[in-house]
Amino acid sequence: MYANQILLAEDDSTDAEFFQRALQRLDSPPELIWCKNGLDALEGLLNASASSPLPRLAILDIKMPGMSGLEVLEKLKANERTRNLPIIIMSSSDEPQDIAQAYDFGANSYLVKPNRFQDLRELVGSINSFWIKTNRLRPMVG
């Protein structure tokens, strides 16, 4: 069983609220779990169990205090239980080396944060259609 949730790891509260508002505009939006830094996100995901299962999707910013989004990504992809969790890196950087590194660590997608609300809404809509509505994770055992 998977909760109809998206985990967002983002240290900037404006960006987080921006994302949340865009998410709200969807019909039956998934629930948003917001972690303010990478460590919280990692702990939360690694401690998933039957009673508090994994979300459908994790969206990670790169630059966060403490652990960066790419570190979290690396660790999640190395862990047996979270290996198949779809992870999107969403960052303000469009530097080729950041994009390359994200994919090297196993990101499923790399998105550049849109500046306009309209653009963000469209993006969130696409994410919802593709990753939430269509994607089925392997059922968790135990």
């Binding site: 900037d12 404006t14 921006f18 630059k63 944060k113 609300f117």
Partner: peptide, 20 residues
Amino acid sequence: SHDLRAPLRGIDGFAEILLE
């Protein structure tokens, strides 16, 4: 430049939400 973009998103993006 990168750090400037975040508050800018705040200004522009929320102005848009306000309008909507």
